[in-house]
């Protein structure tokens, strides 16, 4: 039976109010809570449901990042993944390089489905899955809100600007998740204990031999321009007056 590969990116938790460092070299990450990218949690949940339906045999979670990304992989194992691979890299990879890493792992593991998030909530790139599908020369179904497997095919409903779109793709393929695909399960304490015994392999980026050359350089980080302080009105009449004054109604 088939394997599913799931990407778990370690990112600043979505509840953290991210602040730019005063010297503009990045954002403050010291002492900040790190988590699995929310879209990746949804990807893993979907993989687990597919396996629970008997449509997959093994789920492998993958993170490309620093040694600390083991925490996120352990959480993934506690949610129910079978094994984990950490591709250790101390510098951040551009999405094209991340896609090349996934392609290497695909060559080794031959998964039927690669489930990634639609975007990392740190860089907001929204690229890796599409790039991987191109390099792999396989279909992509991005922004998925529903996945139905049918033998060697999948029917995927996608959240698009106009509403919902359904496409049919041949497997193997890359699927990227949108928010409404599912609601990820909570991890239970006994599962955390069990997860400690599950295999977690570490490979170095160099071992994989991927091209990690960069095309982009971030010159500086700035906080967004602040909005002007607004006014509070006390009732509807004042609200309408304020709107009229601005010429808005």
């Amino acid at each position: 039976m088939s394997k599913i590969l799931v990407g778990l990116k370690r990112v600043v938790d979505y509840n953290v109010r991210v602040r730019v460092k005063p010297d503009g070299t990045g954002v403050v990450t010291d002492g900040v809570k790190m988590s699995i990218n929310p879209f990746d949690e949804i990807a893993l949940e979907e993989a687990l449901r597919i396996k629970e339906k008997g449509l997959a045999s093994e789920i492998i979670v993958v993170s490309i990042g620093p040694a600390d990304a083991q925490q996120q992989l352990r959480t993934g194992l506690a949610m129910g993944a079978d094994r984990a691979i950490l591709v250790q890299s101390d510098s951040t990879l551009e999405p094209l390089a991340a896609a090349r890493v996934f392609l290497k792992l695909i060559e080794k593991e031959s998964p039927q489905i690669v489930l990634l998030g639609k975007q990392g909530i740190d860089d907001d790139n929204n690229q890796t899955g599409q790039m991987l599908a191109a390099l792999w020369q396989r279909p992509q179904a991005t922004f998925a809100s529903k996945v139905e497997l049918d033998g060697g095919k999948a029917r995927v409903t996608r959240e698009v600007d106009a509403g919902l779109e359904t496409i049919e793709i041949d497997l193997p393929a890359v699927i990227t998740t949108d928010l409404r695909l599912n609601e990820p399960r909570y991890v239970k304490l006994p599962d955390i204990m069990k997860a400690k015994k599950k295999p977690l392999d570490t490979v170095s980026l160099a071992e994989l031999g991927v091209d990690t050359s960069t095309q982009f350089k971030t010159l500086k980080y700035e906080p967004p321009a602040p909005r002007q302080k607004g006014v509070m009105v006390k009732d509807v009449a004042e609200l309408v007056a304020a709107l009229k004054q601005k010429g808005l109604v």
Partner: peptide, 23 residues
């Protein structure tokens, strides 16, 4: 940077062997 472009452009970039700048 609509769902159309977000879906398509990274695939184009990878076929060209280059990265993408989003948004």
């Amino acid at each position: 940077s609509t769902t159309f472009g977000k879906d398509l452009m990274p695939r184009v970039a990878a076929l060209l062997g280059v990265g993408q700048l989003s948004d």
